[in-house]
Design a protein around this nucleic acid. Structure first.
Lengths: 342, 342
DNA sequence: GGAGGCGGTGAGAGCGCTCTCGTGGCCGTG
DNA sequence: CACGGCCACGAGAGCGCTCTCACCGCCTCC
């Protein structure tokens, strides 16, 4: 009806309810220490006027913002090919929403963007940050430390950054990889290969470590580097077949890689799992709806990881009544999901 | 060094530069009408103190927020399976960043979330909204209209909402579909099928319309409904082959659907494109890195659409110096990208 | 040479809110 | 019955900024 151009203030609510601004404020913020009839009157006034608190005014005095930045520093395409980020984002969004916090999304590409993000965080526009910094040489963690903003990382950050006390949420990449490879061994496979992810990311490095834990320093030709993409998986698998035609199992660093692997195996006429068993990592394919022969994989609860990141961050913020000091990192367990390929 | 706990205020900058707060403010906001030596002094003070304006205080008086909400109201999985949203988000992010605006992400699922979003937008926390409301029966457009917030839609909204003046950015779904089907006709195909997207979305409906424009009211069995996912594409393709074994071309409503189609054709031993030609829509596969036999498809510049949405929205906001009144919707052209499947 | 104009600067109000503090009424207690 | 304590509420300051307005000095013009 009326132009929403001038929204009602707390003053207006107070006037309508016949109380002081202070009391109206108390009611809006929970109503503790205000007697029932007044609470009721104020509530009704809020309702009738369609009052919504002005967040800027509130922030000005409380120095809280009820907003959290999500920084995704992934160059180019990967964010978009992999349901991983999207799922995690959803978990984060759910948790933040449940606590009335807003999600400010910061996508970065390139070095200058890093500075921009650092400035933004240092600017005190948000109460905290959730950062996906996946590369060992990423300058972002350092910059963020300088910004003195509570931060939780998605995935164990690289060793850099100076502060080894960085809080992060990750899954048990190494343990999951071990389980996968052990499963292949249990199937009687002997020529078990691993196609890695980009090794400047801890998740990829840890999965390789898990593979090595079980296989020892086996035939080095059985380890091929790749990049977490289907295309990369294809290239790596071709190379692998050329090098080691006798390979009888492949542990791919993630599901997308496994997709490429399966494609090449089909193209080369190798049966899965009879000739070559395949295991992936992440269990994102059901989401993407593209299970070829249904992929055996190491499942991690990505959405839960997102939720956890948000929860951890919120628990460090002043408003948290929960008796938390500095939270510590969380590493979630993984589960081997047996399907058709191994 | 020093705790960043108390950040310097404009007052401090002014004091250090030996000017009034007003002058300091002028310099921070562009420096028009301030003489050079003073500008210089203030700039240096800002630098030395590491001053960053307090956005809350600024918003309180300007009533601007330099923030835009992006509302993605897509139930469940689809957002995450399809690179579409991610790409568009990136375009939006780039454009907003270039104009120093923040991106507040609102993911919704379920009806109650709609109310939450409406309240948030009505609350005047952001200067505008970019909304992806893809279903005809979505209540969101109506709620948003009530919130009286400048809004640009991603994709032509359904007819609902009351206001037919909704501004949106879309690609030429109908024209692109026409071109694809005409290409198939040009290849001499006669039994050309269409696997649709969810028809409660205008993009899917428009693509179907484009197909009909060329094919007329052909054999109704050649049109099979689906849902924009690879799994749905598979199911639809199986059904299609059972109904019409003589089909010699398929225009899939999007690339993900085409993926499922290709899989079924391979499974059934049909050669592509010799036996059955296939065309998709979107051209997201290169991004996702999963071109089987490289897919012929209708390309739309998704990232550009995102950028355009943001630009359109920003141009409606007060700060825009550009002489724009109410912007009008934009429909971007599409291009047929010929690859291997047709 | 004086009036008028104009550009550069400072003083001060006020955006809408929270929060401290002071006050008044009501209880319990000696 | 008087007094202290407590609880509920209101008054008012002030968060950090922008913006209007008044002021002042200089230049121009008659």
């Amino acid at each position: 009806m009326s132009e929403a151009v001038s929204r009602p203030t707390l003053e207006a609510v107070a006037a309508r309810a016949g109380v002081s601004r202070a009391t109206a404020s108390r009611v809006v913020n929970g109503g503790d220490g205000v007697r029932e009839p007044l609470v009721e009157r104020v509530r009704r006034a809020v309702e009738e006027l369609g009052y919504v608190p002005n967040q800027a005014a509130r922030s000005l005095v409380t120095k809280r913002h009820d907003a959290v930045a999500v920084v995704i520093a992934e160059p180019e395409t990967r964010i978009f090919a992999d349901p991983f980020f999207a799922l995690q984002l959803r978990g984060i969004s759910k948790e933040l929403t449940a606590h009335d916090n807003q999600l400010v999304l910061l996508l970065t590409e390139g070095r200058d963007d890093h500075a921009r993000v650092a400035r933004y965080l240092a600017g005190g526009h948000v109460d905290g940050a959730l950062v996906f910094s996946l590369h060992l040489d990423d300058p972002l963690p350092g910059l963020i430390e300088g910004a003195a903003v509570p931060t939780v990382f998605g995935g164990r950050p690289g060793w850099g950054g100076g502060s080894n006390s960085a809080v992060y949420v990750d899954c048990d990449n190494r343990g999951g990889a071990e389980e996968a490879v052990r499963h292949l061994v249990g199937l009687g496979r002997t020529r078990i290969a691993h196609i890695t992810g980009p090794l400047d990311q801890t998740s990829a490095a840890d999965r390789l470590q898990g593979y090595r834990d079980v296989m020892g320093e086996s035939d080095p030709r059985l380890v091929v580097a790749s990049d977490f993409t289907p295309g990369g998986g294809e290239r790596a698998m071709r190379e692998l077949l050329d090098r080691c035609p006798d390979v009888d199992a492949v542990f791919a660093a993630n599901d997308l890689t496994a997709l490429g692997v399966l494609r090449v195996l089909r193209e080369r006429g190798r049966r899965v799992p009879e000739d070559v068993a395949v295991i992936g990592f992440d269990d994102v394919l059901p989401v993407a709806g593209q299970s070829e022969p249904a992929l055996t994989t190491v499942r991690q609860d990505i959405e839960e990881m997102g939720r956890l990141m948000a929860r951890l961050l919120l628990s460090t913020l002043p408003r948290g009544e929960s008796a938390t000091g500095a939270p510590s990192s969380v590493v979630l367990p993984t589960t081997l999901i047996r399907r058709a390929t191994a």
